[in-house]
Write a protein that binds this DNA or RNA. Structure first.
Lengths: 236, 236
DNA sequence: CCCTCACTTTGATACCCATCATTGCCACCT
DNA sequence: AGGTGGCAATGATGGGTATCAAAGTGAGGG
């Protein structure tokens, strides 16, 4: 949404067209620009933490952010992957509660912060922005409910295949056209799928043996997306 | 939100205070009143169906409605339980897609219908209403993500205990103060928990043996909610 | 009244998958 | 080089659950 420099213009941001904030009326966008603060985070750094009170929302300018719950037994559950143009932290802000998930950088990232009061006041006077906000919320909710259904009904193998395709959808691929454009640990993949790390490893090996993917370290190449889709056994 | 009679006033609706629509400005609420259509549904009847295009939103006046996905293998997954005052069908409307879930009456119910164009236009001019709408969406999203984490990390036994408490939260209890105020089949309970019907039955029997609950037909009495909470192993 | 049908219950079985443990691999550091 | 720590891979095992099958229960209807 904004460049890493405080006085930069949102209008010059690399991913501005994908961002919700660009739906705001021009004068409001300018107001946001003048108030936002941009920060860079190194890989692994925390943007905000579960349990804390929100003071505003964040908009990803560059990099990759994971949003994850900490389950009751301490295991991580990744609930969302954010890319440039996405906003994060809005759920807690809108429901006026504490964060229910932590946001952690998967890569070196740059993230803009927009103070709570400003955002909420603009939300009240900018119908276009708030409609877009609702659209995002509804869409996230749809995805979440689909994930619930799949977690309840599908075996790990299918969910892993689906997750690989989801990662591709989200972060895309490298120049070769097939290598996933993000480095996730096996544990993170497992926490995205909702399974044990060892199961994720085992099934990735199986996929490799079946010629579906290629593995070298954390790089994952999707050799056969069509067959992977079939493995995921998706209806829609 | 409204009584079963077309010309009834939302202001007289039994659950109006719990309803989002009551957050709308007075003039807008009146506009809604004059346009809404109230329909009654017998137990088991469909309010709207997965895959159909939305023509408006619904507000539950009386009764109980379940919202459920149909999984890829045909098994049902219940994603929400709606009670009087709740609105349903907003997700599809806001994201401008087809319904991803069906709404089915669990009891004889009365539901108001508000046409799409009217609702969307009021949403655009009524900041208070749209803010409340966002609050609801954010809250639903929070619940969905918690459910994802629990599905991924908790055994069926804990999830069943949690579900029983959730049902109590949602629909309350009868005059005796402990019997759940809704009749769900074992299959529906299983589809809410995300497990097989037989597993749900078996664990309900265990709960009964352990003195946590009492069963007679579809009536379920929670004898020991505290112990049930402990069984659910909830952190928060 | 008994029949029927749907739902519930219980039992037996198999298997998916989590867990524990071990080994291997690689990068990094001293 | 050798040590160290983190992560990945593989194996062995047990348990939680799904599935299949069959019997029991209950309500409604002819």
């Amino acid at each position: 949404m904004c460049t890493p420099y405080h006085n930069a213009s949102c209008a010059n941001c690399q991913d501005r067209f994908g961002s919700i904030l660009f739906k705001a009326e021009k004068c409001n966008l300018e107001e946001i620009e003048s108030a936002k603060v941009c920060t860079t985070y190194k890989k692994g750094q925390i943007v905000f933490q579960e349990g804390a009170y929100p003071f505003g929302i964040y908009c990803v300018n560059s990099g990759k952010i994971k949003l994850s719950h900490c389950g009751d037994d301490g295991r991580e559950q990744i609930v969302r992957l954010a890319k440039p143009g996405d906003i994060i932290g809005y759920k807690a802000l809108l429901s006026a509660e504490r964060y229910t998930a932590s946001a952690i950088a998967l890569d070196d990232s740059s993230v803009c912060f927009i103070p709570k009061d400003l955002f909420m006041s603009i939300l009240q006077k900018d119908a276009s922005l708030s409609l877009e906000m609702m659209r995002i919320l509804a869409s996230e909710l749809r995805k979440a409910e689909l994930k619930i259904t799949h977690l309840a009904q599908k075996p790990v193998r299918e969910r892993l295949a689906e997750t690989l395709l989801f990662i591709k959808e989200t972060y895309g691929v490298e120049q070769d056209g097939s290598t996933l454009n993000v480095r996730l640990s096996r544990e993170e993949i497992a926490n995205l799928v909702g399974t044990a790390t060892e199961s994720a490893i085992r099934l990735l090996s199986e996929f490799k043996k079946d010629g579906l993917i290629e593995l070298q370290g954390k790089k994952i190449r999707l050799l056969n997306p069509e067959e992977l889709t079939r493995t995921a056994n998706l209806q829609d």
